[in-house]
């Protein structure tokens, strides 16, 4: 009897796993395959109903997008911006994260709540009225405007990630190092750095990705002069829907970010002390 119910449980589980795989395939794998196909449609022979597969495949669309559209410029913009944003954000977040991760003080909980406010403000409200603020202040540099907007918007993520990293630094290691007469620099190198490094790198990558992906501020403040990858993608999705172009830009937007995110996740896992000591 017990063996029977065990095996039914097993088959139920197998069935559910299969169902999950099927949903995943339909909801994610298939649409992405379609996007890849669409980006490979040869411009000379369109893919139209009732053809199930595109008649001619080529990389000409990719070459065309690269040479004729503003995509290279947008990528340059996006990546330079993201690099600046992530470094600036991390520099600003570090002291605050240190205070949250390693200090107790009155009002800490309130301060932590306050840092999360940007996450609950609707993106387009902050984008539109931030642009109003920029007009009011007479700040007309698109780059600088978006840099400020992204930095503030992504500070909560960096502070949160780094607070965790700082709190994982073990006080007994710091004490031991100081007890053995280590200088501030040595204490930092031996007690802080090994724990902080993965967290810092992960925060850097995550802020970088989020900055590349940010759309509301980039679009409202930047358009039409300053293009980023998401705003280019939007231009292909809006009134003039150019499907092969949208497919190509989609892939350019998603693939590098997924790879970066996997690295960040690996880093965060390696920083987890539970993993390091083998305790579950």
């Amino acid at each position: 009897m017990t063996t029977l119910s065990r095996s039914t449980l097993f088959w139920q589980r197998q069935l559910l796993i299969l169902l999950a795989l099927a949903v995943f395939f339909v909801a994610l794998v298939l649409p992405f395959c379609m996007a890849v196909l669409w980006s490979l449609v040869d411009p000379s022979t369109p893919w139209a109903y009732p053809a199930v597969l595109p008649p001619v495949l080529s990389l000409r669309r990719w070459v065309e997008i690269w040479t004729t559209s503003a995509l290279p410029q947008a990528m340059y913009n996006s990546y330079t911006l993201a690099a600046c944003v992530s470094i600036l954000t991390l520099l600003l977040a570090m002291p605050t994260a240190y205070a949250f991760g390693r200090m107790e003080f009155p009002g800490k909980a309130v301060a932590q709540m306050l840092t999360l406010v940007p996450l609950i403000l609707p993106g387009f409200v902050s984008a539109i009225f931030f642009s109003a603020l920029l007009i009011e202040l007479g700040l007309y540099s698109r780059f600088l405007g978006i840099l400020i907007g992204h930095t503030v918007g992504l500070l909560p993520y960096a502070i949160r990630l780094l607070s965790v990293s700082f709190s994982m630094v073990r006080q007994d290691l710091i004490d031991a190092a100081r007890d053995l007469g280590a200088s501030r620099m040595v204490v930092f190198r031996t007690a802080y750095l090994p724990v902080l490094k993965p967290g810092l790198l992960a925060a850097l990558i995550i802020v970088f990705i989020l900055s590349i992906e940010e759309f509301a501020i980039s679009y409202i403040v930047g358009a039409p002069d300053f293009t980023t990858v998401p705003t280019i993608l939007y231009s292909y999705l809006g009134y003039n829907f150019i499907r092969p172009n949208a497919a190509a830009v989609s892939l350019i937007l998603v693939v590098p970010n997924v790879l970066l995110m996997l690295i960040a996740e690996r880093l965060l896992k390696s920083a987890d002390p539970a993993v390091m000591t083998g305790k579950g």
């Binding site: 977040a93 994260a97 301060a111 306050l114 500070l155 502070i159």
Partner: peptide, 8 residues
Amino acid sequence: LLPGLFPI
């Protein structure tokens, strides 16, 4: 707290 919280 200033550098992180004040901009926000």
